[in-house]
Design a protein around this nucleic acid. Structure first.
Lengths: 340, 340
DNA sequence: TTGTATGCGTTATCAA
DNA sequence: TTGATAACGCATACAA
């Protein structure tokens, strides 16, 4: 829209050839300092700004990274986004952001939109509905650099950044047991999610390690509808075979548990101990405050962006090798898991 | 990057002229149905995707909207973003997202980045540090459509979407008074912010309306550093002239108040009643739950995007007239303002 | 209904 | 050190 002045016009004003002006602005070694100075000052005076689309067309790159997340109202994803943006801004990259709302159909649409090269690369965390990954394969096969974080696709050979899901879930479960829990439930989203699998494995191994029985009723699948989850958790917590400990594999299920015990006689931590993955600072102002597994969200964002931009700047020198990079989480013990 | 097939190549494959193929794909009336069908099916078969930069260069528009917000970890802004994205996605627009982190220098940099036409339009909420608005004026003068929401710039003649800041702050203050508060403090960010001014005006008028004195110490300015705010609020709440009611003009100051009373003897709502602007669903699981002023965030996002896209699609027919559109908030009364 | 030619604003190749 | 020219991929004015 807002048509500024073009390179050609700027060149005319300077009585120079467009190519000369272009080189001067790009600080080419072929151009004399005198000319560079003149060009730059005139460009500023006339408020010249290179047209990014002409440049993208010419150079076949957009200086744009697409970020796809499953939800926006989530402290973890918001922090990762902030981390990605830190690096991107510093390196002159722009961020195209898409929210799939946990909907795989929406995810497919978005991914297909990116097939045209609008973004140079993609950072994403898949939706909880994503099991068929052909749309993502297609993207990768097309040669578009793609990095996964948190909810990853193991079948796509690229670099993934996660936290130590297995270990920290193991530790969290052990923590609940140490605090006296005998019957621990595991709250999760879809079973297809990488984080579900790993965190559940950690949970189950901790139980096994302690010689505790695994009650299938305590493998608790939730939906992405908030009200339903609250309802289901409420039912579980008021049933005869109710758990005395909960490990919530994602933030919103931790919060849903607080919702579920509202207007009940269940007290945390006396009747029920709770630990949840969450990066929300408000975990500390809940009453009782909530013990959380805090993920290195900002760092994950930073690392994703750094690696991707390295790759984009020097495609020959860097590769998105097929590996999973693990950055450890930290358990912040608060009142919801106090033993007394 | 990932070089797909071009229009020319597609045309060659079809033994048609590029212009014909272009017109067929754009569903031009000049092209026969038979040709259209052939072209479309071949395009699908060969996985053709129009290069967005060539198109943007040619058409002088990018199908991209830039959104600038002051913080990402904020339920209001996150919901507005979701609202904008709903409409944008539906209308084939992409979202470039920038977080200023309440830093006006960062805001200036971002705004200057957008001077080159990378985005067709801008939706923004200014940082709390923004008082000099020359960078925004420049953008507007350049003819770039820009819309403000929530934290608006009155001096820039365009459409702004806000909630009924004055009235709802007035009502909220009245609510506190009705619940028995005698000394009400008003928590705010920078005094330059449009929302600060309006909400404070509502607060003050409510006090005046009730014949209550206005204690300047209760006009409480906060920083954007979380810890400092908690500290300052704590000091206020433990000083001899402490308030018995608080109206927090933004979410994080409401939360900061909960933080500040942790480990004190102050009880909400018995000793202190609190109402805060906030769209966070977790307001309901705080203990006591927090009375909130819920802004129509999703609707604000929708309206911003709708108006902007209307303008972009038919620049002649729509104008971003200089007016403030108000969409009312709702007070959700919870335990933090119970009278007993 | 389809084809030919041009230009959007850059950068790069080649020539001067 | 600078200038002329072509090309990126697309959409349109004009020609057929």
């Amino acid at each position: 829209m807002a048509g500024g002045i073009s390179l050609k016009e700027l060149a005319a004003e300077l009585k120079l050839a467009p190519s000369t002006v272009s080189r001067a602005l790009n600080d080419s070694y072929e151009i004399s300092d005198a000319t560079k100075k003149k060009v730059i000052s005139m460009a500023e005076k006339l408020n010249y700004h290179a047209n990014p689309f002409a440049r993208s067309l010419r150079e076949n790159k957009s200086k744009t990274i697409a970020v796809i997340i499953p939800e926006r109202i989530n402290s973890f994803f918001a922090q990762v986004m902030d981390g990605i943006e830190d690096i991107a801004q510093e390196q002159g990259y722009h961020l195209l952001v898409y929210n799939t709302h946990e909907d795989v159909e929406k995810e497919k649409k978005i991914v297909n939109l990116l097939l045209n090269g609008r973004a140079d690369a993609i950072v994403m965390s898949v939706s909880s509905q994503t099991s068929d990954i052909s749309h993502l394969k297609k993207l990768h096969d097309r040669g578009l650099p793609i990095i996964f974080f948190d909810r990853i696709c193991n079948d796509i050979p690229t670099t993934k950044f996660i936290t130590n899901d297995y270990e920290i879930a193991f530790d969290a479960t052990k923590h609940l047991i140490q605090q006296g829990c005998k019957k621990i439930a595991f709250l999760m989203l879809s079973k297809d999610l990488s984080i579900t699998k790993e965190r559940q494995r950690g949970y189950l191994d901790a139980l096994k390690d302690e010689g505790m029985e695994m009650n299938p009723a305590f493998d608790f699948y939730c939906s992405h509808v908030e009200e339903t989850n609250v309802q289901l958790i409420h039912e579980m917590l008021t049933s005869p075979s109710k758990p005395d400990g909960i490990l919530a594999s994602v933030e919103k299920l931790g919060f849903a548990t607080y919702h579920a015990i509202k207007n009940t006689k269940i007290r945390i931590p006396e009747d029920l101990k709770l630990i949840s993955f969450s990066n929300a600072s408000i975990a500390g102002i809940l009453s009782p405050s909530m013990t959380t597994i805090t993920q290195p969200a900002l760092t994950i964002g930073h690392e994703c962006a750094k690696l991707l931009i390295k790759k984009l700047n020097k495609p020959k020198h860097y590769d998105l090798v097929d590996q999973v990079v693990t950055i450890p989480s930290v358990i912040t013990v608060r009142e919801s898991t106090f033993s007394e």
